[in-house]
Simulated scan of single mutants.
Amino acid sequence: MKGTLYLIPTTLGKTPENNAIPEYTLSILRGLESLVVENIQTSVKFLQWVGDTIPEYKIDFYQLNKNTPDTEIFSFMKPLKAGKDVGLLSEAGAPAVADPGSKLVKMAHQNGIKVVPLVGPSSILLALMATGFNGQAFSFHGYLPIDSNKRKQMLIQLEGESRRHDRTQLFMEAPHRNNELFKAILETCTPQTWLSVATDITLETEEIATKTVSEWKSVEKPDLHKRPTIFSIYAK
């Protein structure tokens, strides 16, 4: 009998784990001896934080990041095929969403492995919930181009698609470039376009606000530097 691949969300930052992750999810995690993670060191800290009952030295860690070749990812299937349950963790939030773990999930399906997503925080979904925008038609675009001209063209494209298709557009940036992206949105999008900024979701420093571009220009801007943020635009 084959094992089960559990998709286990992690916290989005330094917050009490029981504020964001249900006890059932944690109970599954605490019983696993094989984990696929993006970074072993930070995952060990997370396990210590949630009170994992299995000693670190008894856990088999498999590291999966954007540079891991498919052949190596396929080798992570070995314990699953041998009947052992395996957990997939991301660095923050839901695994396999804007996360390299999706490759392992696909391979699991292709090999008849049961995949079980567990409940926990997803910054993308939580941000969408808090926008007040269309929650039935939406798209997440990950990271926008770093080049300023390409980023401007992408913002114009996303704004146009939002207007034509009544669609909420969500995207993000590396935290140290948040303020730069925020400024670019205000400079590029039309005054009537709505912009929601969701920062430090689930943390004590959480800030979420939705305003038109015109309104954002007239108020004091939050400092988003090195603070995980989801940006959402909605054009009518």
Score class of each variant (00 low, 15 high):
residue 6 Y to A: 08
residue 8 I to V: 13
residue 11 T to H: 13
residue 12 L to Y: 08
residue 12 L to D: 12
residue 15 T to M: 03
residue 16 P to A: 15
residue 16 P to H: 15
residue 17 E to W: 06
residue 18 N to T: 15
residue 20 A to E: 15
residue 22 P to K: 11
residue 24 Y to T: 12
residue 26 L to T: 13
residue 26 L to S: 12
residue 30 R to N: 15
residue 30 R to Q: 15
residue 30 R to T: 13
residue 31 G to V: 14
residue 32 L to D: 14
residue 35 L to S: 06
residue 36 V to R: 12
residue 36 V to E: 14
residue 37 V to S: 14
residue 40 I to P: 10
residue 40 I to C: 10
residue 43 S to K: 14
residue 45 K to A: 09
residue 49 W to I: 13
residue 50 V to Q: 12
residue 51 G to R: 09
residue 55 P to C: 03
residue 56 E to L: 14
residue 57 Y to C: 08
residue 63 Q to P: 00
residue 69 P to R: 02
residue 73 I to L: 00
residue 73 I to W: 05
residue 74 F to G: 06
residue 75 S to W: 12
residue 76 F to Y: 03
residue 78 K to D: 09
residue 81 K to P: 01
residue 81 K to L: 07
residue 82 A to C: 02
residue 84 K to N: 08
residue 85 D to A: 13
residue 86 V to R: 01
residue 87 G to K: 12
residue 88 L to F: 10
residue 89 L to Q: 11
residue 90 S to D: 12
residue 97 V to P: 05
residue 99 D to G: 06
residue 102 S to C: 06
residue 104 L to D: 12
residue 105 V to L: 11
residue 107 M to T: 10
residue 107 M to I: 03
residue 110 Q to F: 02
residue 113 I to E: 05
residue 114 K to G: 06
residue 115 V to E: 14
residue 116 V to M: 14
residue 117 P to A: 14
residue 118 L to K: 03
residue 119 V to P: 08
residue 119 V to I: 07
residue 120 G to V: 05
residue 121 P to S: 15
residue 124 I to T: 07
residue 125 L to P: 02
residue 127 A to I: 00
residue 127 A to D: 00
residue 128 L to S: 00
residue 128 L to G: 00
residue 130 A to N: 03
residue 131 T to Q: 03
residue 135 G to Y: 06
residue 135 G to K: 02
residue 136 Q to I: 07
residue 138 F to C: 11
residue 138 F to W: 11
residue 142 G to V: 08
residue 146 I to W: 01
residue 148 S to M: 10
residue 148 S to Q: 12
residue 148 S to P: 07
residue 149 N to C: 09
residue 152 K to P: 05
residue 153 Q to E: 06
residue 154 M to R: 00
residue 157 Q to E: 01
residue 159 E to V: 03
residue 159 E to G: 01
residue 165 H to Q: 08
residue 167 R to E: 00
residue 168 T to A: 11
residue 168 T to Y: 01
residue 169 Q to H: 01
residue 170 L to I: 07
residue 171 F to N: 08
residue 173 E to Y: 10
residue 179 N to T: 10
residue 180 E to W: 00
residue 182 F to W: 03
residue 182 F to G: 05
residue 184 A to G: 00
residue 184 A to V: 09
residue 187 E to Q: 11
residue 187 E to H: 02
residue 192 Q to H: 14
residue 193 T to Q: 02
residue 193 T to H: 04
residue 195 L to N: 00
residue 196 S to E: 01
residue 197 V to H: 10
residue 200 D to N: 15
residue 201 I to K: 08
residue 203 L to K: 15
residue 206 E to M: 03
residue 209 A to N: 11
residue 210 T to D: 13
residue 210 T to H: 10
residue 214 S to C: 04
residue 214 S to G: 09
residue 216 W to C: 04
residue 218 S to Y: 07
residue 219 V to H: 09
residue 219 V to Q: 10
residue 221 K to F: 09
residue 225 H to A: 06
residue 226 K to S: 07
residue 227 R to D: 10
residue 227 R to G: 12
residue 228 P to F: 13
residue 229 T to Y: 10
residue 230 I to Q: 04
residue 231 F to C: 13
residue 231 F to N: 07
